[in-house]
Design a protein around this nucleic acid. Structure first.
Lengths: 239, 239
DNA sequence: GAGTGGTCTAGACCACAAT
DNA sequence: TTGTGGTCTAGACCACTCC
């Protein structure tokens, strides 16, 4: 039986995590340093090993520490100087800003796969695909042109949707469980048709997001989203 | 004592995780469904509760399940349709592609903070800051112009570094423990000076990453990184 | 009150690394 | 051989939710 030093009800494992993180943040323990063993922490905190183990295991999952069986626990190498920028779906983002979102569906058709698209979908050229072009408006200002190709096998009723009341994203998430996606962000001059829909000059700078999603082992959709460079931005933070 | 069904040495908690994930992936358990309780899983697998608890707790941390004390465990709502794009530091990225990275330091100076910079750093206008402009080349092709302002309090020896052998990122990570960062990605036309350094036309589309990092409660650096739109891209994946 | 999750204990056996 | 981490047990007490 243990007297958990009462009055502070943060769990013990959390207090141990806090302690370890504080030692690292303060600079007392540096990258690569050996951290006290589980046994040592058991003695230091007067708790059972399972409790210490949970604290250390979670910090390992969080990449704060690394462990080598038989060797010990170490301060993890400097956090990979990589950062994650969050990309949300356009309707959510606009609503999160407290603005009105409206979709304007400019094209919704069945069309044969070009050579390039066929390769990306893994089908024969000429295979029918679904294709939509939708302009998203924020408070009636065009903010995104979404040019999307969809694999009919993944969303057979895609052409019957009313894309003024539901976004393709929302429909696809219901129709086809998403199993993965790849993204690419580029800066490109706007082609004439896109420029017209966005109400900007042709060749104006656009922030372009290209996304390919997978479902049940197939490529479900390939989408290109064009944003006016002076309006759009992707942002994020860490820490 | 327990007979762990021998010959398969994947840990029990992992097998339970696999089982739970499989039930969800197959569609048998849908979003919001109640998942068997820990007690039920204890009986089903014939293991101790701690083992089941670890499996379920980890899946909760991974946002596959959600738990409510007293109520039960549920299949988590559809993964937020937001995605994370990874941004790595330029030198790492170039080397990861197997190419040669070289830095060309065009400017390294002490300069007074403009009104706008002073506000971002939280200092008085005119306060001296460090300023560097570096061109990063991939196999001798300019691929990034890095325009960086640094808080002297965070990296007092910044001006003495040799930025042809170390990147500002690397120096700063050693000098000032990073406690957070904010990012913004934009598409902008290249100003004349940037265009000249990148070897592209003025006003050509650029992919721009603006980053502000924090250290010890202060703004450590404000950086703007310009990439030729036709060469650069940020990419990532999920799933 | 019965059932749920949240946490913790005091042992245990094992694989692995250092010596 | 000793110490490390990796896993597991069979209990326990608590706070909470639902009925």
């Amino acid at each position: 039986m243990e007297e958990h030093s009462a009055q502070d009800n943060t769990p013990i494992f959390q207090r141990i995590k806090d302690y370890l993180v504080a030692e690292i943040a303060s600079g007392r323990w540096k990258e690569g340093d050996l951290v006290p063993s589980e046994q040592a922490l058991v003695r230091q905190f007067g708790v059972s090993r399972m409790t210490v183990n949970r604290a250390v295991r979670e910090l390992t999952a969080e990449q704060v520490l690394t462990r080598r069986q038989g060797a010990g626990t170490f301060v993890a190498p400097q956090k990979y100087q990589a950062t994650l920028v969050e990309i949300r779906n356009i309707a959510d983002e606009i609503r999160a800003r407290g603005h009105a979102h409206r979709s304007d569906c400019r094209l919704l058709e069945r069309a044969p796969a070009s050579e390039a698209l066929a390769a990306r979908f893994g089908v024969a050229p000429g295979t029918p695909l679904f294709h939509s072009v939708i302009v998203h408006l924020e408070d009636e200002v065009p903010i995104q042109v979404e040019d999307r190709w969809v694999n009919p096998a993944c969303a057979p009723s895609y052409l019957e949707q009313d894309f003024s009341s539901i976004t393709p994203n929302e429909h696809l998430m219901k129709a086809a469980p998403l199993s993965g996606a790849t993204y690419r962000i580029e800066a490109l001059p706007a082609p004439a048709e896109v420029a017209a829909m966005l109400g900007i000059e042709a060749k104006a700078c656009c922030l372009v997001l290209k996304r390919q999603t997978m479902s049940r082992g197939m490529v479900a959709t390939v989408a290109t989203m064009w944003h006016p460079g002076h309006l759009a931005q992707f942002s994020g933070s860490v820490g």
